[in-house]
Computed example of a mutant assay.
Amino acid sequence: MKSKDAAAPDPTAIGEISSPPFARLPDPASLFAARAARLSQLADASGLAPYLNFLSGLATAQHLIQADLPPPEGPDTQTLMRAREFEMPPLHRNGIGDGEAIHAVFDRLFAAADAINKPAAAAEALRRVTAADREARLAMAETVLSGALPADAIAEHIFVWAALQVHFARLASVLDAAKLRPVADGICPACGGMPASSMVVGWPGSHGARFCCCSLCSTLWHYVRIKCVLCGSTKGIAYIEIEDHGGTVKAETCDECLGWTKIFYQNKAPATEPIADDVASLSLDLLMREGSYRRGGFAPLLAGF
């Protein structure tokens, strides 16, 4: 396996970029079903097929449990005004509270996940998180929201993360995208989450623009290219990819913070889904481990590899 050093600027024509919106909110009614379909498609030609099929089942569960949930309640006017005034995300990641909404998502997702075909270790992890009381589940949620997964309980926390994704995607969906503003480099403007990856899109009106994808609520936000997603530097940016992979995914490296993030080229591969394709491109993560850069953002589905 070899890397191709793309130390020169990203070669995709920046002149194609139109006037993209700053943010694109998730549609929970279609988000997880589309992700499940993409994971299943990727599994057909991958050595990670068992894991990708498991994740497809989990995404299907994320989709199905929303059927009878009450409509999400977005932030009140005062919260929105304060967030705008102080340049903060309107959704509070560190204060999900102990309301019925989050516990309903926990209960439904854990029950639906029981039917997924999975390894014995994952089944045991699901049993533990299902048996956990509300306080313990909220403690695990706080750990996930901190951007770290404990090495001895990754699987349990992935189930919790999957539930949080549903909860926060629903909350983000009722925000006004036109009123979202940049918060900080590497921070979702809707919920404050870290990016899972970024992608150069081919959407009408946004062709050639780059959007980051939140690992928590799945909000997409516009972020200029050839700029580090993690620290905002425009110096020392380079691109590394695996040869003969079609140039559809690269590692964007930064010599200022020594971090790297994945950048997908959805304009070249329209079926790209940032969470699903992140897992399927594990080979790039393995390649990057040989170097001195550390992966930034948050990619819990790759935490066990």
Results as ranks from 00 to 15, higher is better:
V224C: 10
P150S: 14
A169I: 09
I240R: 13
E241Y: 06
E85G: 15
I14S: 03
G304C: 03
R84A: 15
G186K: 00
L42K: 11
A155E: 10
C214K: 05
R225L: 01
S281M: 10
A121Q: 06
C188I: 05
E243T: 15
H222E: 12
I187S: 01
E156W: 05
S206E: 08
A209C: 05
G205M: 12
S19K: 12
L171A: 04
E73W: 13
C188H: 03
I116R: 06
Y51I: 12
K118Q: 11
P204C: 10
L55N: 03
L138A: 04
I240M: 14
T143M: 11
G186Y: 00
A67F: 10
V144T: 00
A172D: 04
A122T: 09
Q66H: 10
Q78V: 12
G15N: 07
T261R: 04
G236Y: 07
A45E: 13
R225S: 02
V200I: 11
E85F: 14
A123D: 04
S3A: 15
I116E: 04
G57M: 03
V229A: 01
I240T: 15
L175R: 09
G186H: 00
K4D: 13
A33D: 03
S206H: 04
L69F: 11
I187W: 01
L282P: 02
D176K: 12
L302S: 09
P274D: 08
V160T: 05
A115M: 09
A59Y: 07
R35N: 02
H63I: 00
V279Q: 06
P189V: 03
V224Q: 08
K179Y: 01
P90G: 04
T234V: 11
A132G: 05
G57H: 02
M288N: 13
F110T: 06
T248C: 08
E273L: 06
Q266N: 12
A172M: 06
P70C: 07
K179N: 07
A172L: 05
D107E: 12
F32R: 07
R137V: 01
A271R: 15
G246D: 07
